[in-house]
């Protein structure tokens, strides 16, 4: 009797878990490499989508470990939004591990004007160079608008019934992105100093968008920590060019920044390159936060 009851309970538990694991029909699930792409997808998808991001803003988007739990989440998605340009090669392992035959991969770098495309031979003697160019394009809100249109087309293909909604929300997003760019470009013009160092070449698109000049990077080569000689050169450059600002990500060591502050009065400003939440509005709000942080530095 008890055995039969136990078997029935076990069968019910398995059935419940199988039903619970079945994809929800109502919302289209979208996975994204970063919270920025997830936020853009949330803006474009509206109530029709459910988004999920893998890389967290406080960790390096170049280096993400392919956890089985990510594969499980991607197994339930219909779209996977990749940054592309070689930044998130790790996503391939997650996509393969997801075992999801219905997944469509969307490279959100499509249509973006890529900066810092290497010319000539590229090899590891130049550090961790991206052979297709700088992949941090989302740090220009105008590129966010391009990505939004790419996402809208992918959503429209996956869910034709709501295509018009996706496209109109992408256009609304593009207008907001333009307004964000104009507003923050004006703020950048008013900055007391518009020359800066960055730790990594993550901020090239931001500088390009808002008229800032990156004098040098703390890394002598991409992905290579600074040497004492290179830091000494940065001190000389800071004094010669009046650089008072270092923009760096929270996952890089802070000792180089402290050294530059002590030796040349360069103030480190720690900002994430990704927005705080994978929700609508967070991506564009991030530009206001970055410019606000730069405004807070007084030479």
């Amino acid at each position: 009797m008890f055995r039969k009851t136990r078997l029935a309970l076990l069968a019910s538990a398995i059935a419940v878990s199988l039903l619970a694991a079945a994809p929800a029909a109502a919302k289209l699930r979208v996975a994204a490499s970063t919270q920025d792409l997830a936020s853009i997808a949330a803006s474009v998808g509206g109530d029709q989508v459910e988004v999920f991001a893998i890389a967290r803003p406080t960790s390096d988007p170049h280096r993400v470990e392919a956890l089985p739990s990510y594969m499980v989440q991607v197994s339930r998605a219909r779209l996977f939004l990749k940054v592309g340009l070689g930044l998130d090669r790790w996503a391939d392992a997650i996509v393969d591990g997801s075992r999801n035959p219905k997944l469509t991969i969307v490279d959100c770098s499509a249509g973006v004007s890529v900066l810092e495309k290497p010319t000539g031979k590229v090899d590891a003697s130049q550090g961790d160079v991206h052979p297709f160019g700088n992949p941090h394009y989302w740090l220009d809100p105008r590129n966010g608008a391009i990505a939004a249109r790419t996402v809208a087309e992918a959503l429209a293909q996956a869910d034709p019934a709501n295509a018009a909604g996706y496209r109109s929300r992408a256009e609304a997003f593009a207008r907001d992105a333009q307004a964000t760019w104009e507003r923050n470009a004006a703020r950048a013009k008013a900055l007391p100093s518009r020359t800066l160092f960055t730790y990594h070449r993550s901020w090239s698109y931001l500088a390009d968008a808002f008229g800032l000049e990156i004098v040098d990077t703390v890394e002598p080569f991409p992905g290579i920590p600074p040497t004492a000689k290179h830091l000494a050169e940065l001190v000389e450059q800071a004094k010669a060019r009046g650089v008072k600002l270092l923009l760096q990500e929270p996952y890089f060591a802070s000792d180089a920044g402290r050294f530059l502050e002590r030796e040349a009065g360069v103030r480190p400003v720690v900002q994430t390159t990704s927005c705080a939440e994978p929700v609508a509005g967070s991506y564009l709000k991030h530009f206001d936060e970055i410019l606000g942080a730069l405004e807070g530095v007084r030479p």
Binding site: S17, A22, V72
Partner: peptide, 12 residues
């Protein structure tokens, strides 16, 4: 074969 669980746990 990965068991279809409702969580983000992966059981293979």
């Amino acid at each position: 074969y990965r068991l279809p669980l409702p969580t983000s746990w992966s059981v293979t």
